[in-house]
Every structure is written in C-alpha cells, then in structure tokens.
Computed example of a mutant assay.
Amino acid sequence: MKNSKLLSAFKSNSLNLNNHVVMAPMTRSRATGNTPNDIMARYYGLRSSAGLIITEATSPSKNGLGYPNIPAAYSNEQIAGWKKTTDAVHKNGGKIFLQIMHTGRIAHILNLPEGGEVVAPSAIQAAGEIFTSEGAKEHSIPREMTIADIAQAQDEFVQAARNAIEAGFDGVEIHAANGYLAEQFINTGANQRSDNYGGSTENRTRFVLEITTKIAKAIGSNKTGIRISPFSEFNDMLIFDTMQETYTYLVEQLNSLDLAYLHMAGMSAKIPEGYLQELGAKFNGTVIYNGGLGYDLERAEKIVSENEDSLVSIGFPFISNPDLIARITEGAELNEVDQNTMYTPGEEGYLTYPTLENA
C-alpha cells in the first residue's frame, strides 16, 4: 500500500506508534491456571509490528475470572508472567496495553478459583450458557454487589492497573464493553439497582467513571484507555431507550480525564448509521474504531484518513497472521483463521500460523 495513512506513524500526547493499526483484544484461553506463560509471550511478541497491541481480557481478581484459562493480574506470579510478554513486545519495538476485565455475571462458579464468587450489579442471571470443566452450563445467578463490594471491585481494578505498569505495560484499557461487569452497570437490562449506582444515566455510569478516574490518577491519564460498545447485545445486553443519551453523557464526562484513547467496538448491526463517528467526534482525544462486523482494509484506510487522531483495531486477521502489517504492506494473501483452535490449549492454532518469511 503506497502512501497509506493506515501504515504511517501515529503520534499524540499519549501515544507514539509505528502505524495506525491496533491489534484488538481477543480472548485466546491459553493462560493455564490463569497465569500468563511463555507461549503467550511468543504469541504477542510475533505480533509486535502492530502500532499498538491490546491484550486479551485480563481479570483484576478471583471474582472476575468467569471463563476458564483467561489471564489475571492480581498475583506476583501473574505479574512475572506478563513481564515475559511485555519484554517480548518491547524487544521487537512494539507497544502494548493490558485490557482489564471483570466478567461479572458472565461466569460460572465452576470457572472461579477457590474464594471466588459470581457478583454483578443486580442478581439477574444472564441468558445463555458458558463453557466449564463439566461442559456447557447456564450462567450462575450472581449475588447483587453491596456498596462495599463495589468499592472492593474498584480497588481491584486500580491495583491491576498498577500491577500492569510493574509488569512493563505501556498502559491499560478498561473493558467497559461486551456485556461484562463495567457495562453491566451501564445497561438497564443488567442493572436494576435503586441506589447511587442504578436508575439514572448519571448513576448507571458512575461505576465506570469512578474506576477510570481512579486508574488515571494511579498510573497517569496518558496510560489509561477505555473500551465501550454501544448498541451491542452481546452477553445478554439490552438495547434500552436512553442508550444514545447514556453514551453521549459517558463520553462527555470522560473528556475531563484526558485519556490516552477511547476504543469503540462496532460489533452490532443495530448501531444507527454514523453514530459511532458522531460519538467519536465528541471525544477530545484519540479514538480507536473497531471493525467488529468484518475486516475491510479500504474501510480502515478511509477511517484514519477522514478522522484526525484516529486508529483502527483489527481482530481475527491478527490471530492467523502474526506478520499482518507486512502482509498489508506487500498486498499479500492472508491466512484464514481456524475457528476450531480459537480457545483450545497449547500451540496449535496459536503459534502455528506461518509468516511470509517461513510460508
């Protein structure tokens, strides 16, 4: 791609990147025992040509480990494990943020370590099933969080952010999307509280704004990003009447924090046409637009060309193409993703995709 804006360097007050391409966060379930390991370091190291890598969702606590074999960032062992990944990425000249995610009600008690508990804004069971060691099960019914539980969860997010910096990450992304705990507070289908964390737009966005403010204060606003997904129904989220008003308010409040970026997931066909661009225009800083509905190079190029201070995050193609940037540059054919090995243990479908060099 000649004269590509997508492949050109990007610089903002918070980010200094080799290109405008972001590797989107994608769960891969290779963290045996919830601890990052050597094959994860190799996986991310191979993809360091992305302008920015955002890791798979990482739990700040035992309560947030709703899926099997997802990583965490609350123990010394986990910090040491993640240090292998950041070293590998930085050695190859890349930048990497840790995505912090608490699963909330998208969980089953069988997946949690000893001492873990399924908690959420309200005691409302999520529809659908989740994979466990005993096969597919309905989601566990969560216990409604007390004010003390909310304060504890926020502290866990902040400590995970501090741990990420200790592990060598360039920053963190707060996962307030895709139906997990932070978005559960925002969404009226999952949050039916009557206290200061439920009801009005201001109350439902309070949890997210508080943890974002606390993390920005703890590690620096220039190292803090956030991901949202308006109009997504993933993980039993409800498209509610005041959704546009709610997310407009949230973004306007985030503006006061001078964050590294706002990452918006476009994974729903029900997003009103042009809405994400309108929302992005309200944010005073870098916006990462996510493909969501499919990888389209021309669309990605158009987004970064037409929207100043914007980046594009790409998901699936990075799974099967560790050298995706080189393939885009050369106009080379892409490897197809093997859906059967997306979440299976070990190196197959994780470290076995060929690069152009060794194809």
Score class of each variant (00 low, 15 high):
residue 42 R to M: 09
residue 347 E to G: 00
residue 66 G to C: 01
residue 191 N to Y: 03
residue 279 L to K: 04
residue 8 S to N: 13
residue 35 T to Q: 13
residue 283 F to P: 09
residue 46 L to C: 08
residue 60 P to C: 01
residue 240 F to P: 01
residue 149 D to T: 02
residue 293 L to S: 11
residue 220 G to K: 10
residue 107 A to Y: 01
residue 66 G to D: 03
residue 297 L to E: 15
residue 249 Y to P: 04
residue 287 V to N: 11
residue 338 D to W: 06
residue 298 E to L: 14
residue 333 E to A: 13
residue 169 F to H: 13
residue 131 F to M: 03
residue 292 G to E: 09
residue 266 G to D: 11
residue 11 K to D: 06
residue 105 R to H: 05
residue 359 A to S: 04
residue 34 N to R: 13
residue 306 E to M: 14
residue 206 R to L: 07
residue 115 G to S: 04
residue 40 M to L: 15
residue 281 A to W: 06
residue 230 P to T: 06
residue 247 Y to F: 15
residue 255 N to I: 09
residue 25 P to Q: 10
residue 34 N to Y: 14
residue 273 E to K: 13
residue 265 A to W: 02
residue 346 G to Y: 03
residue 17 L to A: 12
residue 181 L to P: 05
residue 207 F to H: 08
residue 305 S to C: 15
residue 243 M to T: 14
residue 345 P to Q: 02
residue 246 T to W: 08
residue 31 A to M: 10
residue 83 K to N: 14
residue 16 N to P: 05
residue 85 T to M: 12
residue 9 A to M: 06
residue 207 F to D: 10
residue 3 N to F: 09
residue 311 L to K: 14
residue 101 M to H: 02
residue 213 T to V: 03
residue 148 A to S: 10
residue 40 M to H: 07
residue 191 N to M: 01
residue 78 Q to T: 07
residue 107 A to V: 01
residue 63 N to H: 13
residue 188 T to E: 14
residue 292 G to S: 14
residue 75 S to P: 07
residue 309 D to L: 15
residue 323 D to G: 10
residue 172 V to Y: 12
residue 180 Y to S: 05
